[in-house]
Design a protein around this nucleic acid. Sequence first.
DNA 1: ATGCCTGAAGGGTTCAGA
Length: 285
Amino acid sequence: MRIATWNVNSAKQRVPRLLPWLDQRRPDVVCLQETKLADSAFTELLGAEFEARGYALAVHGEAQWNGVALASRVGLEEVTTGLADAPGFPHPEARAVSATCGGIRVHSVYVPNGRTPGSEHYHYKLSWLAALKKVVEAGPENALVCGDMNVAPADEDVFDPDAYAEETHVTPPERAAVRDLGLRDVVRDRWPDRRVFTYWDYRAGMFHQDLGMRIDLVLATGPVAERVQAAWVDRHARKGKAPSDHAPVIVDLDEAPDGDIGPVVPPPSAKPAKRGAHRLPQSGA
DNA sequence: ATGCCTGAAGGGTTCAGA
């Protein structure tokens, strides 16, 4: 089961990149952020395209900013939009959509930017992350939080920690709020020492110089993290004509969402089995 | 360069993004 998350920075502008990418990577579950479309506009623009590819679709958007979506071809059940008890700014914004897909509770999230440490928007960001923590804690043990967290978990996740001193995305309270979700960061688990970013500013050739940040995360509960077979950033999608400023993150899970991969057999005993004790069935004659 | 691009709204410019 392949899960992908991508901040597309306008679904409307990204259609020529999004559809070929879907056909190339063929994720089973797709989390999108910054769709920047009202629900009706998203459905009119892309509903048939997703349907033709076998996806069920859940969208939660607004006209101008924000906006998230969740598409799945392994089931899309118990859809919820927004977060219970999420703060607004001042009103609730379209920043979360959740559904159960293939036995996993999947959350597509676009965490508030925070703008400036100490600002009202910064406190809104921290409150929003606290609401996300409550939702995850109240949910099932098989869960994924996928999206633009707008937090670089560690100094290794920014091209130059000094460049972000006193800026949002790296402050200890933001990092603590992400850590306190109690989830595994599956890309960092897979690539503990790799320089890996998911966002590069459009300006000044930042992508070309690989001066970026890793702020788009796939965070998994323990049982889901144990199933990770691959976890990587699709930098190809950041290249070429009219890209988003974010790259997708793609994660492949082992099958068996219910954990049933066959009967449990006891481990072999320390004493080697007697030679010939485990004969294969013999064919006739 | 104090927003270097990009997108949205809507108007000839401003705000937001990270």
